[in-house]
Nucleic acid binder design. Sequence first.
DNA 1: CACGTTTATGTTTTT
DNA 2: CATAAACGTG
Length: 820
Amino acid sequence: MATSTSNHSHGIVNILHTLNANQRQAVTSPPISKLQIIAGPGTGKTKVLTSRVAFLLLEGKIPAEDIIVTTFTKKAANEMIERLTNMLPDINLDKLKIGTFHSICFKLIMKHGGKLGLSGFTIADERDKDFYIKEMLSELTSIEVSSFSPHDMNQFKGKKSFPKYHDLSPKIVSSQISHLKSKGITWDKYSKEKEYNACLDLFYTKYQNKLLRNKVLDFDDCLLACHELISKFPLTNIQHILVDEFQDTNEIQLQLMYKLSSNVTIVGDPDQCIYSFRNAQVINFQKMIDHYQGKQQSVDIITLDNNYRSTHDILGFSETIMKQEQDRKTKQLISQHAKTFGSPVYAQLASDIQESKWVVSQITTLLSLPNQLLHPQDMAILVRSAYQTRVIETELNRQGIPYHMIRGRAFWDRKEVVVMMDYLRIIANENDRVAILRTINYPKRGIGEKTLEKIDEFLRLVDSNSTVYEKLLTISEVKLSTKVKSNVNVYLKFISQAKEKLQAIGDDETKLVGLFDFISKESGLIKELETPTEIENIDEIKKVIGQFVPPPQDEDVPYRNILGQFLDSIGLNETIEEQQQHSNHPKYKGRVSISTIHGAKGLEWPIVFVPGLSEGLLPSNMALRDNEVTSINEERRCLYVAVTRAKLLLYISWYVESETDDNEQSWRMKISEPSRFINFIKNKGNVVSGFSQDSLKTLYEMLGKSYPSEFDFNKFHQAYLAKIESIISNFDGSRRRRRSNEFEDFTNIGFTEATNIHNRKKNTINHFLNRKAPRIHPLMKPSVNNKAPAYIPTRTGISLGTKPRSKAPPYIPNRSKKIP
DNA sequence: CACGTTTATGTTTTT
DNA sequence: CATAAACGTG
Ligand SMILES: Nc1ncnc2c1ncn2[C@@H]1O[C@H](COP(=O)(O)OP(=O)(O)OP(=O)(O)O)[C@@H](O)[C@H]1O
């Protein structure tokens, strides 16, 4: 919608007022331009991008629907819309094209896909992709297989043998195809490539055929097909495209960007590229410059170096990590915080469990500071791999601390959740063969492997005039036992009833919950489920469907039923997390965030914990295995991203397990060394860090709270030290009880000078670490009553991460009495 | 042939 | 511990 400048010019002035000179220059660059904003963490890149959208709307007078903004996640998109809405209360942003590359592309395909014969196509998620790959491989004839050169075939050999798939690893095949797609190479063009493998050509072609026949697009296809679409039918209206997190774009995304608009603003930080496993290429910065220079067009580059997020010491620490990379130019970010707290608090522990206890006790200490200084929502625990969250969750549960998982995928991988979603899928979409195959015998309907094969064989004979579901209705043509037939009919009757109900509710999304109840009950799924956890998870999905609001539809988008719209909305893994509402524990505000480092991209917290800084965790075993410099560098960037999420306090930790300590899980690779990335930390022995009263006062000041004069700091401090000491000396906390002579490792507990972490002028900085604290001698007696209660965390704690599923366990050890 | 039970085997990161 | 393949039973 057009808006007059005079009405809003004060608006842009206000916005520019919150920016520094460099940021302002970036924001107010001419709308007709190519602009790169390259800057380190916390320099306000996202803020600049958001403000630039406002600038383009207000000053550039570009209608919202003619601007595309790509963000890395749905969450980032939502945040940006929220900020824009606050900035520009008078402008309707509904038509702004903002979202991930995948969702923007998928929407374009939904709208115009008919031109390429893609109407009605849905998304094949990773699980479906895996299914089609395996199906494709198992269908290869021995003639086809024997026609390939051993050299070509060997590329696809995995560690294991795969008898069902001619010894071809589905994983490798899948990732190779994905690799081609993210380079923008379509199946019909692959043969022209220099690096050509006849095997891969056949796999790719067959796989793509399969997707087409099943009317689905995989994630990569969303981009690839969209690229094809706009190459043939260009969008003429887009006046500007803005790309966030440019360092993590791949080739096809770069090509899409060129095609979508000739005016471009990108922001990114090469040091934060952590998605090259998904073919992201940091070289896109240079490629973009070359691309436009080839067309005699120049690219403006603006850098920012004021950091508004982190303290001086956190920036120093992060730079110390990054400068380990060969040939990297040092980056000097200037912290805008007046105060800083010294080097990160760190500790070396003896097991993952002990490490979790250390982390969580730091959290309980911080939470127990008087005057509600900190809330759970101010803190985050960031790990390299999702599985590492497990022990931490257990400990958080044990201490009754509410937490939530950011972008946890585990929930959607649960069996009962998958089946429930499959029921929704087949009811919404008659062509979803995979969903039929996965639901028809769950709950058990006496249809085993063999029968399922027969049915599947029959279903795949479907011709393009009818749907897979219609084909299943004629199943009586197949010879099956009468018992099986009647069972299939029970299933079919149920599906058709559900479909009728779906018809009846029309576009009223508020009735979806009722339909959901009908489906979960009448399918027999609820009855089949055994644990209360599983039923809870079904309820979780119900909550998600209950919150679903269909997006505003363009007029000319082909119709899709409301359930299908819901499934589309979660198909791209873009589920928004439930807002932090009331927590179970009124004492706490919000929740501690737990996330993988990848999931924490672009986010920030006052307090950040980065546990697991050991060889095998960060860098991960996978990166160690191939021992490529590039892999190690990416791991290092991961750590860099993690530590630069912290605003005020950073806690890092690692553990090394003893060689002789064989535990039950013998397959687990032993963690035996601290991470190479922290080699520069000299005194790695157990460090017990205390607060100093001064730094604590500074913390209050920076958070705008008053430091209570009656607070007995010494008492608090002593209790803290004792708590940490008891964790370190309590070997019940490690996986297995140790022999007593191993305690020797821990006699040198004490404080290290933290200053050696990086050079700085001593007097200018407040230290968060108390360097004068006394040496502490571990008490060697593992006390009996310290034994952890037998408490098994429910896996649901992961679900959507919306709430701590389980109530705090009845026994809450070691809990400070004065949580305010 | 379906389905329950035993046993081998193995943890990146995600749109 | 969590999943999948292999094995055994009715
Ligand atoms: N000119 C400014 N004045 C005050 N605060 C600012 C300014 N610019 C940015 N900030 C604040 O700094 C923090 C970091 O900003 P932002 O998230 O935009 O950084 P970023 O460069 O995108 O970081 P990352 O690379 O880690 O994603 C935010 O809290 C933001 O509000």
